[in-house]
Design a protein around this nucleic acid. Sequence first.
DNA 1: GCGATGACAGATATTGAAATCTGTCAACTG
DNA 2: CAGTTGACAGATTTCAATATCTGTCATCGC
Lengths: 191, 191
Amino acid sequence: MLTPDRILDAAEDVLRRFGPAKANVVDVARALGVSHGSVYRHFPTKAALRDAVAERWLNRVSAPLAAIAAEHGPATGRLWRWIEALSLAKRKKVLDDPELFATYHELSLDAREVAREHVDTLARQAAQIIADGIARGEFAETDPATTARAVLNATSRFHHPAHAAEWTEPGLEDDLRAVWRLVLSGLAARA
Amino acid sequence: MLTPDRILDAAEDVLRRFGPAKANVVDVARALGVSHGSVYRHFPTKAALRDAVAERWLNRVSAPLAAIAAEHGPATGRLWRWIEALSLAKRKKVLDDPELFATYHELSLDAREVAREHVDTLARQAAQIIADGIARGEFAETDPATTARAVLNATSRFHHPAHAAEWTEPGLEDDLRAVWRLVLSGLAARA
DNA sequence: GCGATGACAGATATTGAAATCTGTCAACTG
DNA sequence: CAGTTGACAGATTTCAATATCTGTCATCGC
């Protein structure tokens, strides 16, 4: 039985093997032992298939982060662990799955829906931790959504795929910690 | 008389007209009415010529910022004007000179010397303002160089060429202001 | 003699014809 | 009849021949 999920598995495999530039629908169909027309029964276009692969792949990044966001301890430590985990996860992805990472980066360049949704998901998680921090009196009173966006923007050098080329530089961890110190004092500061 | 400066003028023109992908040394020589061999008398390689064009072009960004860094008023307002001017200058460049901007972006991707120096120059200017702010009691005591790097990193979404594609989105100014508020409270916070 | 030239070799880019790919759909199968 | 197939048109990509470009250097002319 041909299901979207089986197609996604095959597509991810093909994408990982050949990269976004060389992967094509016929290869995906061949990997499944069906004609490429059948793939089009489940995904309207090649772009939709690619987006679905990226979406699943991005969920594997954000799901572990959601766990941190849902914890109940002090918000300061949680937010730091959340940011560090985000940065580490992205760096790990670019090393382990360079081809899938390139696919994702392509998406984010086109400002595709999937990339935007991923950012929204991350912003929601960060906002949750920040709202907790405000409730617990750890952070100053601000709009959690706006502040979460600001935190994401301020740390984009460490998780935005546009900066992936810089992630091998030494001292990256130190730079992240320096930005974190700045951001943390900003969050904690009384108005 | 063929001088490096005249060559740079011609090269900048050619680069602006054809873009980094199409511009070539023969065209630059033709624009000057000399043979391309003569250009090689002044610049050892095409890459060196390209770097020199970018360097001059980047100096035109950092020079007006140096003026702000050298002012004597309150550091808080100066730092904000400095960051805003940096972000605006880059955005203006990408609109006015897309081809030269692409040249510069290419450099920054290759992590070329010129791009690194530009970042160092900016970091030095920011460090100067931050050191002033610490001396004036506006900012908490920190290492100005480290903090300057952190401020640059935290705002890279608004001036790093890798993010140029996002600079047409509405709300960019608001995002910058939100990050600035966060950073400013971080700078001002007492230890 | 000093700066400029232009022919040259090897590297790189362009081009257009041929091959492949995407997306559709009428026909097929179980 | 639900799901699959494969032939097809038009779009896109590949590939190899051709042209152009980079960087060198022996030679030129002022």
